[in-house]
């Protein structure tokens, strides 16, 4: 089951991160952590997986002497999310429609 769903996105936290980023231009790591209620460690690992897949860009910089991590969705990420949602629809729709 769900063999057509992208395994990178078919994980609760990674899907939540992409769903947050799809609606914004960019978001800080702390914002994503706050909205997903994830632990910093787990979120870091999942963000890294999304980055390695090319679905998000991660920018590390300093803001007023504090390190800041900014994430934004890439074109490949948008395409993957659209494909994922289309595939989901086929599972949710009753057969014959």
């Amino acid at each position: 089951m769900f063999k057509d769903l992208d395994p990178i996105l078919h994980s609760q936290l990674r899907l939540a991160v992409i769903s947050l980023l799809i609606g914004v231009r960019e978001a800080e790591f702390t914002f994503i952590k706050e909205k997903t209620n994830a632990t910093a460690g787990n979120l870091s690992v999942q963000i890294n997986k999304l980055k390695e897949a090319g679905y998000i860009e991660v920018i590390k910089q300093f803001k007023e002497n504090y390190p800041q991590t900014i994430c934004k969705i890439s074109k490949a990420g948008i395409d993957a999310f659209e494909k994922y949602v289309n595939a989901l629809e086929s599972y949710v729709k009753p057969s014959g429609q």
């Binding site: 769900f2 078919h10 994980s11 609760q12 936290l13 990674r14 899907l15 939540a16 997903t36 209620n37 994830a38 632990t39 787990n42 999942q46 989901l88 599972y91 949710v92």
Partner: peptide, 10 residues
């Protein structure tokens, strides 16, 4: 809930 990497239904 704290989000983990559990399998998801559609």
């Amino acid at each position: 809930n704290t989000m983990e990497n559990e399998p998801l239904s559609a």
